[in-house]
Amino acid sequence: MYAIEKVGVLGSGSFGICLANLISENYEVMLYARRQEVLNTITVSREYAGQRLSDKVYVTNDLKLIADSCKLIFPVVSSSGFRDVMQKISPYLTPGHVLIHGTKGLDVTLLNDEIPEDDFSESRKYIFTMSDVILQETSVKRMGVISGPNLAAEIAQGLPAATVVASKYDDVIELAIQALKSPRFKIYTSKDLVGTELAGVLKNPIAIASGIHAAMDLGHNARAFLITRGFSEMIKIGKVLKSDMTGFLGLAGIGDLIATCSGNLSRNFSVGYRIGKGEKLKDILSSLQETAEGINTVKIAYSVSKYYKLRTPLFDALYEVLFQEASPYEALKELLNSPTVKDVDFI
């Protein structure tokens, strides 16, 4: 048993609050809320994003206080704000801290639109997972990721769920198990950090595709077609981004795909659904309260695919629909007309 005193959670979105409540079953939690109005709302009402906050959760916007009080911290802020938060907390972090993030997105701070063609190094020089960002910005070495089919709304209702904690360090995994132990939350472990991160990231575009499909009402066969081919393309992209395949085959990959592609609880799925119903992306974006990570991921995955000359017709079609205003019907037609290839070509 590790001597955990308090646990920090950075990010007060729906998953942040869900995680804070879950951990509070075992330890006191310090929850970081970046925006003042959110902090005020939570402090007054003890409720946010449709969830009631446990009494053992203390909300603050003081990162120093969190770093000083908590040696185990779960950052779950959106990928676009992740680097910023890491930069802010970095002065208070030491190699004695352990970070386990739950952000299913990529950081592209260094990437303008596309990967420069004449650049020598591969795309991982520009495209970072959240663990890369932690390494770049802080002195923390011991880190991990928590990922899987963890729709916050269901966990908040007390429904059972499973997740995977991946880290190269056994002690990080042990700490996560100790902090998250719960009769309704089953934890699995993995050593494939990058694979688990990328699986969680790359499944988001497929969730958008599923949403579009649902709006178009194309039937179960077509949905299975989309998910399976999407999975195959995810692995192809993951591989060139230097990840193992094991992360994709578990809860963070297949598991999360099944959850987010089957229902409308996922933000990415909802975005897809609205696109499928004919709404414009910019209108949807302006109405969203929280980030739909998948939109950015489509853009990045598309660049990576082009850079490495991969064959990813589904990701290409998604890119065209989202950013080039192609009609979903046209994109679907193109997908069906793409050349016949081997079913499983990633093993």
């Binding site: 590790y2 002065p91 190699p95 004695g96 002195s139 070495k141 002690d171």
Partner: peptide, 29 residues
């Protein structure tokens, strides 16, 4: 560290100021 702040090496081998001998961690280091 990267931000020119002094680092205590003890921190790499401890959690919550408790020293821990962990072969797996050391082999990852």
């Amino acid at each position: 560290d990267k931000h020119n702040r002094p680092i205590k090496l003890f921190d790499y081998f401890s959690f919550n100021n408790q020293f821990l001998w962990d072969e797996q961690r050391n082999s990852q280091y």
